[in-house]
Amino acid sequence: MTQLTPMLPGPEPMSLRGSPRRRRKERSVHVVLLSAALISILISVGIVYSLVGNAIDFLQKIDLSQLWTTGYFPRRGLFDLKTLFIGSLLITGVALVVAGPIGLGAAIYLSEYASPRMRRICKPILEVLAGIPSVVIGFFALTWIAPNIVQRIFSQSGTFSLAAAGIGVGILIIPIIASVAEDAMRAVPLALREASYGLGARKITTSVRVVLPAAVSGIVAAFILGISRAIGETLVVALAAGGSGGSVFTTDITGPGQTVTAAIASLSFGSDQPAGDDAAFQSLYFLGIILFIFTLLLNLAGDVFVRRTRQHY
């Protein structure tokens, strides 16, 4: 109490320089974090580099006419691209037919109709669905969807079909579409709903003609995420669509077929010994790079659309 300022405990005057150890530590933290960021970039660049290199090797090894033939049988030198791309598109189409209405319907229900209590119950269940491993869905598609749904509708359908796989993929992307679309709709201000109700609109009119258009950019984003996932989905298709080893060109969803990703998977699976045939093995890189460009374009297009239609309220 008597001797105030001079005896205050505290750092010595020279402490303005700070502790050199701490400053070294600070710098090293910076370096560690920077290298973490650099490593992830390096990995991406490395993947693209190896894809491109091997894809070019592959293109030099084959005759370009081999890319447009009757089907995809890599070990026989038939690398028909349209078989795989049409297969991917068919799967995505079937998946969207299943997941579009269900996902969007669930989103509208959760955002506009459900009581807070109901939402608290439903949302986690939906997220559980998103957490089911795709191999489980694939097995389910093969053993249940194929006999109980696909074969009931299309009696000519066999054990394996693009339709069964597509439905499986659809189930997989329902939670993505529902959850992202619901977030977008919930972000629409209450004031717009009040404006609509105040004009004598019913709930369904308000949901469909006010909330949905106001949330369109987020809903498109939800669908693009779903489509990206559907195109990239491998295991469900590999299990339920058949076509291991190859597939002739088909547009028939009741029959077996092959997609870009499932083709990569089936050739890479142990039994096929991919290293045995160089061209077949390297075709996978070529498919990989095409898939990469395709999803990149899709995401870019989605991004442009989302930005152009984003509403400012």
Binding site: A191, A195, Y197, G198, G200, V210, P213, A214, Y313
Partner: peptide
Amino acid sequence: AVEVRRRIGMVFQKPNPFPK
């Protein structure tokens, strides 16, 4: 309530045009 609101309109505190 929908019939009620059709006859009894409302203007709110903050202007709330639809994004249309």
